[in-house]
Design a protein around this nucleic acid. Structure first.
Length: 294
DNA sequence: AAGTGAACCTGAAGGC
DNA sequence: TGCCTTCAGGTTCACT
């Protein structure tokens, strides 16, 4: 589920819950998720204060007063639920109000954190593709999952010049190149499809064909802009959902209703009316308009 | 070296 | 109702 906008939304929701709070208890319901939990995971978290929370790519990172960093990836189905005196609320794949009390008792509730204000934060992940790791701050730059990761698409380092550098001579299709976290960090299947549609670029086009000696493809700056726009709009939609916690579900709150191509196979293209098509690239579904994207 | 496909899991949805 | 197949927002690993 979670691409950059969803992870950002979850991180923003957790931030006021966790920052400045001390972890008073840790309960692990299994040995690990996609990977085993690190050595002495619960012990190293217990008693620590969370000093800051931020996002990098699709990772949520929590700085602790021990000098360690807690790294979290939501995989496909990871989500957090916060149980406080005010009631439960979910942050992540689904946003809904829950009536039940304590939480942490579901079959897929794998990690529970108790905080010094009585709040309980529960991590739920049916498919267990999520990741949690803990390592010293000084090792962050060399961490296997953070090293070599690409630019943040909403940051200044992501621009036309950067794509020129990374796409030159690249034989992979645009779809695959944009999904590559070592090039751009945080894009996923939905937003790549949406950005390519907005930019009028075929997902099958080889990335390197946008780069030419005499003038690059004029759609290259469009692609940069559309990637930024679609992510920004999705964050804005997720954020608005986060505020009232009353919505049902969604890729990022209500943004899914604004997909122009994703999961719309057979429906008429919003620009030209011809049917949206689906194809498989590197094992992932791609949705696009054959007529509008080239 | 770069690019593709299988593998990791569970659950939801659709066909029969 | 139930069984079976297919597919899912991600990443890593093993091959060509």
């Amino acid at each position: 589920m979670p691409e950059l906008p969803e992870v950002e939304t979850v991180m923003r929701g957790l931030k006021p819950v966790l920052e400045g709070r001390r972890i008073t208890g840790v309960s692990l319901r299994r040995e690990g998720l996609r990977f085993p939990f690190p050595m002495n995971f619960a012990e190293r978290l217990s008693g620590r204060k969370v000093t800051s929370l931020w996002r990098r790519a699709k990772y949520i990172l929590a700085g602790l007063d021990s000098g360690d960093i807690l790294l979290i990836h939501l995989g496909m189905t990871g989500r957090f639920t916060v149980f406080s005196a005010a009631g439960a609320r979910n942050l992540g794949e689904f946003y809904f109000e829950t009536a039940s009390g304590e939480g942490g008792n579901g079959p897929h509730d794998h990690v529970m954190l108790s905080l010094d204000d009585g709040t309980r934060v529960v991590y739920t992940d049916p498919r267990r593709f999520g990741i949690m790791d803990l390592f010293a701050e000084t090792e962050a730059a060399d961490h296997k999952m953070l090293r070599g990761i690409g630019v943040e698409p909403l940051g200044n380092a992501f621009n036309e010049a950067y794509l020129v550098e990374r796409f030159r001579n690249k034989a992979a299709p645009l779809k695959s190149a944009l999904l590559d976290q070592h090039i751009i960090a945080g894009l996923g299947n939905i937003y790549v499809c949406e950005a390519l549609f907005r930019a009028g670029l075929s997902p099958r086009r080889k990335a390197g064909t946008l780069i030419r000696k005499k003038g690059n493809d004029p759609r290259l700056p469009d692609l940069v802009r559309h990637i930024r726009d679609v992510l920004g709009e999705a964050i804005a939609a997720g954020g608005s959902t986060l505020q009232d916690f009353a919505h049902t579900d969604g890729a990022s709150g209500e943004f899914q209703q604004r997909f122009l191509v994703y999961d719309r196979e057979g429906e008429p293209c919003s620009k030209c009316g011809s049917p949206i098509e689906r194809l498989v690239q590197s094992g992932r579904s791609t949705f696009y308009c054959r007529k509008c994207q080239s």
